[in-house]
Amino acid sequence: MTSKRQVAMVIDLNKCIGCQTCTIACKTQWTNREGMEGMWWNTVSTAPGEGTPKGWEKMGGGFRKGKAQPGKLPKQGEFGTAWNFNTDAALFQGDTHNTLGPITGDPDWGTNWDEDVGGGEYPNSFQFYIPRICNHCTKPACMEACPRGAIFKREEDGIVVINEDHCRGFRFCQEACPYKEIYYNTVTGVSQKCIMCAPRLEEGVPTACSRQCPGRVRFLGFLDDEDGPIHKLVYKYKVALALHPEYETEPNVFYIPPLAPPSFDEEGNPIDEDRIPLDYLESLFGKEVGPAVELLKAEKAKKKAGGESDLMDTLIARNWMDMFGPFTTNPKDVARTLEQRVQNRQG
């Protein structure tokens, strides 16, 4: 059951700018087929906020002390609807009663509805962006919950995949996944989720969300590659942390926690207190987040003083290609075979 190797990702929240290029890259490559219009295998949410699906952190699932926990089934609309626009009726008309807007009327939720809303109170407001994909967990709650055995973890790279031929759309996986990263296709009646761009990885091409990220946020590689940045960030420096580790699924997507400018006292003078409350960060990343943040600050200070820091240099990644481990192929060079594999999956 355990995989021989595990593909993992480290997402640097200090470099994420919330531009959603990853979301678009994923959307245009994977989730434009029928029944998938409202799916976002990759999301970027502003934290604090409800996230996507709306309120997912309160929906349960995962394990506690090894025991599967009940989870809620997210409602379709909580993922955000792919609004269609009355482009035909509006542009068209110059008539104010046909202003361009969603056909279904005024929306009250969307996948990025909370963008830049943030938390705290001005001037001590705080916010950061948090991209999410399937965590391709080492102990996937979805896999354990599937009565059909339709979910499996690939031996060669640990990618968690749903076999759509076996899936009957029971959606137990959706309840069990504490990250609510599984979607239901109402047209085909099966559950679908991020496939870690497996067809791209098989050709040596980084995932679309990694390679197309202009913020250079995502490191990609095998977790056991001791020379790679992922191993360094997760194990050596311990600055890359799993999101909600309390669910015990052992995610393989890790996050560099966010820094923020200092907060202000009542007169508006800067004080040393962290703008992002530590207890909020701990609620996301567990108790290890405090030391991780401190190490990042200390290493940055070292750099500022003119010193060397392997950690900072790793995070900077001056040579972009260093971020992707063995996945260094340009997709245009394998465009033909790449797409063939997409079709094998679909067929």
Partner: peptide, 24 residues
């Protein structure tokens, strides 16, 4: 579809390269 070419050369070893220029 389109995807960033991302073939900009690093200017010198001190600085990051410009890849992969592009936005959503």
């Amino acid at each position: 579809r389109e995807e960033q070419a991302a073939e900009y050369q690093q200017l010198n070893p001190d600085v990051p390269d410009m890849n992969p220029r592009g936005c959503q």
